[in-house]
Nucleic acid binder design. Structure first.
Lengths: 136, 136
DNA sequence: TATGCAGCCTGTAGCCACTACAGGGTCAAG
DNA sequence: CTTGACCCTGTAGTGGCTACAGGCTGCATA
């Protein structure tokens, strides 16, 4: 299959596919006589793996490690679990952080009564961290 | 005060302060004979506003608009409220998205029983989006 | 046969919000 | 007089793409 087909099949931008090849995340495919990239099922599965992992928020370097494990079925799988567990922790931290931020924003937004910027509580609150209830 | 003091006073990296000046978020301060930047209380307040807004997740462009309002106390304050409200919505969306992601990661992580990568449920799940319960 | 147009190629530059140097000048203490 | 902390400018790198410019290929239609 050509790059456009692979793009549609995996929901990945064409430029992104070429980018993944450039950084060594996808192996260079065969080429047609016209120098077009020609992909097979293996490429498709690998790209799906990459996309899915990116959708789950893994970094490129984490995905590199996960792909490496996937390429070596005889290795110990503990590393995959460590990567995923650490990532889960990071996601949980991010959620906690954003929740604190949301609370603070809700307090700030709720205070605007309209009127002039000089009296605006939103602008005042942004200038004065001391008004915040919690760290964020 | 010199840049190092301002940096400590606001918890902002020195390089970041110079960056903000370069992109026009902070006005260029006076200079000493030795060409050192020399800040006053106004600069400090403005930088605190910027840092606080960044900590709350506003983009540089949003902050530019907010600063502009803050500089013109005679304008209508509705725009500040719109910016903050829209930002709050984005934060809420991000939290929802990360929560879905966390649920999916929890399911994936919980399935590793140790052993070989070839049998690893973590790696298998990453390759197969069909195993996911919800969109993410 | 000509022509148009979708699709592919390479290479480079841009995005955001910083961060990290390299290579130099300034200033106060010991 | 040297050491070391601090400051200066300018440029390049980060992650993960995305957006061209400028050119080639392949197929359908007039």
């Amino acid at each position: 299959m050509k790059i456009g087909e692979l793009s549609r099949a995996t929901g990945t931008n064409i430029e992104t596919i070429r980018y993944y090849e450039r950084i060594g995340l996808l192996p260079p495919p065969a080429r047609t006589d016209a120098n077009y990239r020609s992909y097979d099922g293996g490429h498709r599965a690998r790209l799906s793996f990459v996309r899915h992992s990116r959708d789950l928020g893994f970094t490129i370097e984490e995905i590199r490690s996960l792909l490496d494990l996937s390429d070596h079925p005889d290795r110990d799988c503990g590393e995959a679990d460590r990567i995923a567990t650490r990532h889960l922790q990071q996601v949980e931290e991010k959620i906690a952080q954003l929740s604190a931020l949301r609370d603070e924003l809700q307090r700030i937004v709720g205070r605007c009564r309209g009127g002039l910027a000089g009296d605006c509580r939103v602008i005042e609150a942004l200038g004065d961290h001391g008004q915040c209830e919690r760290a964020h």
